[in-house]
Simulated assay, not measured.
Amino acid sequence: MKNKFFTHPPRWVYGLIAILTTCTIFFAQPVQAISIWDIIRGGAQVLQGIQLGSMSPEREMALGGQIDQQIKQQLAGNGTPVVRNDHLATQYINAIGQRMVDKLTPAERRNINFTFQVVNDPNVNAFATMGGFVYINAGLMVLADTEAELAGVIGHEMGHIIERHAIKQMRERAIQQGILSAAGLNQAQVIQLGVEVALNLPNSRSDENDSDTLGLSIMRRVGYHPQGMANFMAKLASQGGGRGMTILSTHPNPGDRVNSITQQIANNPPTQTEMGGMDTQAYCLEIRRVVSNRIQCS
Protein backbone atom coordinates (compact mmCIF):
# COMPACT_ATOMS: atom_id res chain seq x y z
CA MET A 1 0.00 0.00 0.00
CA LYS A 2 1.33 3.39 -0.94
CA ASN A 3 1.89 6.00 1.70
CA LYS A 4 -0.98 8.53 1.29
CA PHE A 5 1.01 11.26 2.94
CA PHE A 6 3.50 11.45 0.06
CA THR A 7 1.12 10.78 -2.77
CA HIS A 8 -1.66 13.06 -1.53
CA PRO A 9 -0.34 15.37 1.21
CA PRO A 10 -2.84 17.22 3.36
CA ARG A 11 -3.97 20.63 2.09
CA TRP A 12 -2.27 22.51 4.94
CA VAL A 13 1.11 21.39 3.64
CA TYR A 14 0.70 23.54 0.55
CA GLY A 15 -0.03 26.56 2.73
CA LEU A 16 3.07 25.88 4.81
CA ILE A 17 5.22 25.68 1.68
CA ALA A 18 3.83 29.00 0.43
CA ILE A 19 4.60 30.71 3.75
CA LEU A 20 8.15 29.34 3.85
CA THR A 21 8.78 30.45 0.26
CA THR A 22 7.54 33.97 0.96
CA CYS A 23 9.69 34.25 4.07
CA THR A 24 12.74 33.05 2.14
CA ILE A 25 12.27 35.69 -0.54
CA PHE A 26 11.64 38.47 1.99
CA PHE A 27 14.55 37.76 4.32
CA ALA A 28 16.91 37.33 1.39
CA GLN A 29 16.65 41.10 0.80
CA PRO A 30 18.91 43.43 2.81
CA VAL A 31 16.67 45.47 5.12
CA GLN A 32 17.20 47.89 7.98
CA ALA A 33 16.05 46.58 11.34
CA ILE A 34 13.04 48.45 12.76
CA SER A 35 12.17 47.99 16.38
CA ILE A 36 8.65 47.92 17.72
CA TRP A 37 9.47 51.19 19.57
CA ASP A 38 10.27 52.91 16.27
CA ILE A 39 6.87 51.94 14.99
CA ILE A 40 5.13 53.12 18.14
CA ARG A 41 6.97 56.45 18.16
CA GLY A 42 6.25 57.05 14.49
CA GLY A 43 2.59 56.32 14.99
CA ALA A 44 2.42 58.65 17.96
CA GLN A 45 3.87 61.51 15.92
CA VAL A 46 1.29 61.02 13.20
CA LEU A 47 -1.55 60.89 15.72
CA GLN A 48 -0.43 63.85 17.81
CA GLY A 49 0.43 66.33 15.09
CA ILE A 50 1.89 69.67 16.20
CA GLN A 51 0.89 70.82 19.67
CA LEU A 52 1.16 74.60 19.85
CA GLY A 53 1.01 74.63 23.63
CA SER A 54 4.04 72.41 24.18
CA MET A 55 6.69 73.16 21.58
CA SER A 56 10.45 72.96 21.99
CA PRO A 57 12.55 76.00 20.97
CA GLU A 58 14.08 73.92 18.17
CA ARG A 59 10.65 73.02 16.82
CA GLU A 60 9.48 76.61 17.11
CA MET A 61 12.50 77.94 15.20
CA ALA A 62 12.09 75.32 12.47
CA LEU A 63 8.41 76.11 11.96
CA GLY A 64 9.13 79.83 12.27
CA GLY A 65 11.64 79.51 9.45
CA GLN A 66 8.99 78.00 7.19
CA ILE A 67 6.50 80.73 8.15
CA ASP A 68 9.24 83.28 7.39
CA GLN A 69 9.66 81.85 3.88
CA GLN A 70 5.92 82.10 3.22
CA ILE A 71 5.82 85.66 4.56
CA LYS A 72 8.69 86.62 2.25
CA GLN A 73 6.93 85.10 -0.74
CA GLN A 74 3.71 86.95 0.05
CA LEU A 75 5.48 90.26 0.60
CA ALA A 76 7.45 89.86 -2.62
CA GLY A 77 4.21 89.10 -4.46
CA ASN A 78 2.78 92.36 -3.12
CA GLY A 79 5.78 94.31 -4.42
CA THR A 80 7.27 94.87 -0.93
CA PRO A 81 10.05 92.29 -0.58
CA VAL A 82 12.28 91.69 2.41
CA VAL A 83 15.65 93.20 1.54
CA ARG A 84 18.78 91.09 1.34
CA ASN A 85 20.85 90.21 4.39
CA ASP A 86 23.82 92.14 2.98
CA HIS A 87 21.83 95.34 2.52
CA LEU A 88 22.96 98.27 4.67
CA ALA A 89 19.49 98.71 6.15
CA THR A 90 19.34 95.07 7.25
CA GLN A 91 22.82 95.27 8.72
CA TYR A 92 21.84 98.37 10.68
CA ILE A 93 18.61 96.85 12.05
CA ASN A 94 20.35 93.58 12.86
CA ALA A 95 23.16 95.34 14.74
CA ILE A 96 20.63 97.08 17.01
CA GLY A 97 18.61 93.90 17.46
CA GLN A 98 21.58 91.69 18.32
CA ARG A 99 22.82 94.16 20.93
CA MET A 100 19.41 93.82 22.55
CA VAL A 101 19.49 90.02 22.27
CA ASP A 102 22.81 90.04 24.13
CA LYS A 103 21.05 91.62 27.11
CA LEU A 104 18.30 89.01 27.40
CA THR A 105 18.18 86.83 30.49
CA PRO A 106 17.86 83.03 30.23
CA ALA A 107 14.19 83.39 31.22
CA GLU A 108 13.72 85.68 28.22
CA ARG A 109 14.47 82.88 25.78
CA ARG A 110 18.08 83.50 24.88
CA ASN A 111 17.99 80.04 23.27
CA ILE A 112 15.98 81.52 20.39
CA ASN A 113 17.99 82.69 17.37
CA PHE A 114 16.57 86.14 16.62
CA THR A 115 16.57 87.38 13.01
CA PHE A 116 15.96 91.06 12.21
CA GLN A 117 14.89 92.00 8.70
CA VAL A 118 13.82 95.09 6.75
CA VAL A 119 10.76 95.13 4.48
CA ASN A 120 11.04 97.43 1.46
CA ASP A 121 7.71 99.09 2.16
CA PRO A 122 7.06 102.84 2.65
CA ASN A 123 4.13 102.11 4.97
CA VAL A 124 4.74 102.32 8.71
CA ASN A 125 4.67 98.81 10.13
CA ALA A 126 6.56 96.23 12.17
CA PHE A 127 5.65 92.67 13.06
CA ALA A 128 7.11 89.39 14.25
CA THR A 129 6.47 85.67 14.13
CA MET A 130 7.38 82.64 16.19
CA GLY A 131 10.94 81.41 16.20
CA GLY A 132 12.62 84.83 16.50
CA PHE A 133 11.75 86.54 13.22
CA VAL A 134 11.30 90.35 13.39
CA TYR A 135 10.34 92.56 10.42
CA ILE A 136 10.68 96.36 10.28
CA ASN A 137 9.29 98.37 7.35
CA ALA A 138 11.57 100.95 5.75
CA GLY A 139 8.73 103.47 6.19
CA LEU A 140 8.89 103.04 9.95
CA MET A 141 12.64 103.61 9.95
CA VAL A 142 12.07 106.90 8.11
CA LEU A 143 9.24 108.00 10.42
CA ALA A 144 11.36 107.53 13.56
CA ASP A 145 13.41 110.56 14.59
CA THR A 146 15.98 108.82 16.79
CA GLU A 147 17.63 105.45 17.15
CA ALA A 148 16.01 105.13 20.57
CA GLU A 149 12.59 105.30 18.89
CA LEU A 150 13.59 102.54 16.48
CA ALA A 151 15.05 100.46 19.31
CA GLY A 152 11.76 100.78 21.16
CA VAL A 153 9.92 99.23 18.21
CA ILE A 154 12.46 96.43 17.90
CA GLY A 155 12.27 95.72 21.62
CA HIS A 156 8.48 95.63 21.45
CA GLU A 157 8.52 93.02 18.66
CA MET A 158 11.07 90.97 20.59
CA GLY A 159 8.64 91.07 23.50
CA HIS A 160 5.96 89.42 21.38
CA ILE A 161 8.35 86.57 20.56
CA ILE A 162 9.61 86.15 24.11
CA GLU A 163 6.04 85.97 25.43
CA ARG A 164 4.97 83.55 22.64
CA HIS A 165 2.11 85.84 21.63
CA ALA A 166 2.01 84.59 18.03
CA ILE A 167 1.72 80.98 19.18
CA LYS A 168 -1.11 81.93 21.52
CA GLN A 169 -2.91 83.76 18.71
CA MET A 170 -2.43 80.84 16.34
CA ARG A 171 -4.00 78.49 18.86
CA GLU A 172 -6.96 80.82 19.41
CA ARG A 173 -7.40 81.19 15.66
CA ALA A 174 -7.32 77.42 15.18
CA ILE A 175 -10.07 77.04 17.79
CA GLN A 176 -12.17 79.71 16.05
CA GLN A 177 -11.77 77.93 12.73
CA GLY A 178 -12.61 74.56 14.28
CA ILE A 179 -9.40 72.91 13.11
CA LEU A 180 -7.76 72.35 16.50
CA SER A 181 -8.30 68.89 17.93
CA ALA A 182 -6.67 66.72 20.57
CA ALA A 183 -4.40 65.45 17.80
CA GLY A 184 -3.00 68.95 17.22
CA LEU A 185 -2.41 70.61 13.84
CA ASN A 186 -0.57 69.49 10.76
CA GLN A 187 2.40 71.45 9.47
CA ALA A 188 0.53 73.17 6.64
CA GLN A 189 -2.09 74.45 9.06
CA VAL A 190 0.54 75.84 11.42
CA ILE A 191 2.32 77.69 8.62
CA GLN A 192 -0.91 79.14 7.25
CA LEU A 193 -1.96 80.34 10.70
CA GLY A 194 1.49 81.79 11.34
CA VAL A 195 1.39 83.92 8.19
CA GLU A 196 -2.16 85.08 8.91
CA VAL A 197 -1.34 86.09 12.48
CA ALA A 198 1.87 87.92 11.52
CA LEU A 199 0.42 89.94 8.66
CA ASN A 200 -3.24 90.48 9.46
CA LEU A 201 -4.44 89.83 13.00
CA PRO A 202 -4.38 92.54 15.70
CA ASN A 203 -2.66 91.94 19.00
CA SER A 204 -4.72 92.08 22.17
CA ARG A 205 -4.49 95.03 24.57
CA SER A 206 -2.86 92.78 27.15
CA ASP A 207 -0.25 91.47 24.70
CA GLU A 208 0.60 94.98 23.55
CA ASN A 209 1.11 96.21 27.09
CA ASP A 210 3.23 93.19 28.01
CA SER A 211 5.43 93.67 24.94
CA ASP A 212 5.81 97.39 25.64
CA THR A 213 6.93 96.71 29.21
CA LEU A 214 9.40 94.00 28.18
CA GLY A 215 10.72 95.98 25.21
CA LEU A 216 11.19 99.04 27.41
CA SER A 217 13.26 97.00 29.85
CA ILE A 218 15.44 95.48 27.12
CA MET A 219 16.21 98.77 25.37
CA ARG A 220 17.21 100.36 28.68
CA ARG A 221 19.72 97.57 29.35
CA VAL A 222 21.47 98.43 26.08
CA GLY A 223 21.64 102.10 27.10
CA TYR A 224 18.82 103.59 25.03
CA HIS A 225 16.73 106.32 26.58
CA PRO A 226 13.29 104.85 27.39
CA GLN A 227 11.63 108.09 26.26
CA GLY A 228 12.35 106.94 22.73
CA MET A 229 9.58 104.34 22.95
CA ALA A 230 7.12 106.83 24.38
CA ASN A 231 7.98 109.40 21.70
CA PHE A 232 7.39 106.99 18.84
CA MET A 233 4.14 105.74 20.37
CA ALA A 234 2.95 109.34 20.71
CA LYS A 235 3.78 109.87 17.05
CA LEU A 236 1.59 106.93 16.09
CA ALA A 237 -1.23 108.23 18.28
CA SER A 238 -1.08 111.72 16.76
CA GLN A 239 -0.91 110.45 13.17
CA GLY A 240 -3.34 107.56 13.63
CA GLY A 241 -5.66 108.86 10.96
CA GLY A 242 -2.84 109.55 8.56
CA ARG A 243 -1.74 107.67 5.49
CA GLY A 244 0.39 104.55 5.71
CA MET A 245 -0.20 103.70 9.37
CA THR A 246 -0.48 99.98 8.69
CA ILE A 247 1.00 99.29 12.10
CA LEU A 248 -2.19 100.45 13.84
CA SER A 249 -4.20 97.60 12.32
CA THR A 250 -2.15 95.04 14.22
CA HIS A 251 -0.85 97.19 17.13
CA PRO A 252 -3.87 99.05 18.50
CA ASN A 253 -4.40 101.57 21.33
CA PRO A 254 -1.33 103.80 20.88
CA GLY A 255 -2.81 106.55 23.07
CA ASP A 256 -3.38 104.26 26.03
CA ARG A 257 0.04 102.75 25.58
CA VAL A 258 1.72 106.17 25.63
CA ASN A 259 0.18 106.82 29.03
CA SER A 260 1.30 103.43 30.34
CA ILE A 261 4.88 103.81 29.06
CA THR A 262 5.13 107.38 30.37
CA GLN A 263 3.98 106.22 33.80
CA GLN A 264 6.55 103.42 33.84
CA ILE A 265 9.32 105.88 33.02
CA ALA A 266 8.11 108.27 35.73
CA ASN A 267 8.15 105.45 38.27
CA ASN A 268 11.65 104.41 37.21
CA PRO A 269 13.53 107.41 35.75
CA PRO A 270 16.46 106.68 33.41
CA THR A 271 19.95 106.59 34.84
CA GLN A 272 23.05 108.17 33.32
CA THR A 273 23.71 104.92 31.44
CA GLU A 274 20.24 105.03 29.83
CA MET A 275 20.48 108.25 27.85
CA GLY A 276 21.60 106.97 24.46
CA GLY A 277 20.07 107.05 20.99
CA MET A 278 18.44 110.50 21.20
CA ASP A 279 20.56 112.35 18.62
CA THR A 280 18.16 113.24 15.79
CA GLN A 281 20.84 114.51 13.42
CA ALA A 282 23.00 111.40 13.77
CA TYR A 283 19.99 109.16 13.23
CA CYS A 284 18.82 111.05 10.15
CA LEU A 285 22.26 110.77 8.57
CA GLU A 286 22.30 107.03 9.32
CA ILE A 287 18.86 106.50 7.75
CA ARG A 288 19.94 108.56 4.76
CA ARG A 289 22.95 106.24 4.40
CA VAL A 290 21.14 102.90 4.79
CA VAL A 291 17.62 103.60 3.44
CA SER A 292 17.62 106.46 0.94
CA ASN A 293 19.97 109.30 0.11
CA ARG A 294 16.92 111.39 -0.82
CA ILE A 295 16.16 111.96 2.86
CA GLN A 296 16.89 115.55 3.85
CA CYS A 297 18.63 116.11 7.18
CA SER A 298 18.57 119.62 8.63
Rank of each mutant, 00 (worst) to 15 (best):
R294F: 05
F114G: 10
V82K: 02
F114V: 11
M233A: 14
I17A: 14
A198M: 01
V197E: 07
G277N: 11
A128R: 04
R109M: 12
E286T: 13
N120K: 01
R99V: 05
Q51C: 08
G77A: 15
T129Q: 04
Q177W: 03
A18L: 14
I287E: 01
N186K: 03
N267F: 02
A166Y: 05
E286N: 08
P10Q: 12
Q187M: 05
R257N: 07
I247H: 00
L140G: 01
G255P: 07
L104I: 08
D102E: 15
M278L: 12
V222D: 09
P226K: 14
N253K: 07
R164P: 02
A174F: 00
E149M: 04
G132H: 07
A282K: 11
Q32Y: 05
Y135Q: 11
S35T: 15
Q70M: 11
M100W: 00
F232A: 06
L47A: 09
P254I: 09
G184A: 10
I167T: 10
P30Q: 12
S204A: 14
Q296P: 01
I218Y: 04
A128S: 14
I287P: 00
S56C: 05
L248M: 08
G277Y: 06
R171M: 12
I40D: 14
M61A: 08
N113G: 11
Q74S: 10
A76Y: 00
P81M: 05
M245G: 07
Q227G: 03
P10M: 02
I167N: 06
P254R: 00
G49K: 00
T213C: 06
R220S: 11
P9H: 12
S249N: 15
G97Y: 01
V197N: 02
V83R: 03
A188C: 03
Q45A: 10
G228W: 12
E208V: 12
G241H: 08
T273P: 03
I295D: 09
L201C: 02
E108M: 10
G223L: 12
Q73I: 13
L20D: 08
A151S: 12
D210R: 14
D210T: 15
N186C: 09
Q91W: 00
P270V: 07
S204C: 10
R173F: 01
R257W: 05
T213M: 12
Q189E: 15
R288I: 07
I19V: 15
E274P: 10
L236G: 13
I261F: 11
G65C: 06
N85G: 06
P269V: 09
H8S: 12
P270E: 03
F232S: 13
N123H: 01
A182R: 02
L285C: 06
T115E: 15
G155W: 03
G152L: 08
